[in-house]
Design a protein around this nucleic acid. Structure first.
Lengths: 127, 127
DNA sequence: CGCTTGCCTGGAGTGCACTCAAGGGTTTTA
DNA sequence: TAAAACCCTTGAGTGCACTCCAGGCAAGCG
């Protein structure tokens, strides 16, 4: 048990996550972050738990999930264990969307490769 | 040689491509479409060539390429054969971005699967 | 003590990719 | 031939995900 838990200022979190201070404050405002601890003067002091959550949020964002859905997910987490079903559904829907997106990208990639090959050939290429 | 080339009204193109009439007109306005033929009264009459181009534009859009870059590509096509190098570069850059995006999605998918598995387990799950 | 630096808030502004509105012609159907 | 359906243009509006601004407090240093 470590009694001196590490706390991070907003600029440290900015450096670690790549999210701007603006975005971090905005995430908190819209309910995408649990309320962050404050120093006696009101400045944010992020914990490792906060950083971990931000890491997960980053993954969700990478899936293309909308901010509205991420906020919904965060709400469900705050509401407790009885929301696991809805959370799982949300993630499963997102999962299906990711798979569809990957398929779409893979498909578009083929077209891209075909065009690139055309342009790389010695002959004249068209549109 | 077929002298009766098929022409499509804007609503037929809407039905075939899934793009709205608004979007089709907007594409033309911003230079993402070559200028489309018009009927004597000024209504658009799309050709099969136009449809083919729209199909390709759809693929580009599916890669996540910005509209600005698609317009740039369209300009290069209009300028002729001496732009093939720049076109190829544009497509190759897009290709790299698609690969990066697929990697990112694949990575996020793992996290998603991990979480879903947690929620599907019989025990209590956390954040 | 004054100055710089860092952080705070609420609200306005930005860029992207559409999307819609207003006002008006044209073409098809009854 | 009148009504309904379709199409035109310019320009304004929308939703999303940030991003920035103004005005102000607080901590540290020289």
């Amino acid at each position: 048990m470590n009694l001196t838990e590490t706390r991070y200022t907003i600029s440290e979190v900015e450096a670690r996550t790549g999210l701007t201070q603006h975005t971090l404050r905005w995430y908190e405002r819209i309910g995408l972050m649990p309320h962050v601890d404050r120093s006696h003067s009101g400045q944010r002091r992020f914990s490792d738990k906060d950083l971990h959550w931000l890491g997960f949020v980053g993954k969700l964002r990478a899936t293309g999930m909308s901010v509205a859905d991420m906020v919904r997910y965060a709400e469900l987490v705050r509401e407790g264990d009885h929301t696991v079903d809805e959370r799982r559904e949300l993630l499963e829907r997102t999962r299906r969307e990711v798979l569809a997106r990957v398929a779409e990208l893979t498909d578009a990639l083929e077209v891209l490769d075909f065009k690139i090959a055309l342009y790389s050939g010695t002959g004249k290429a068209q549109s």
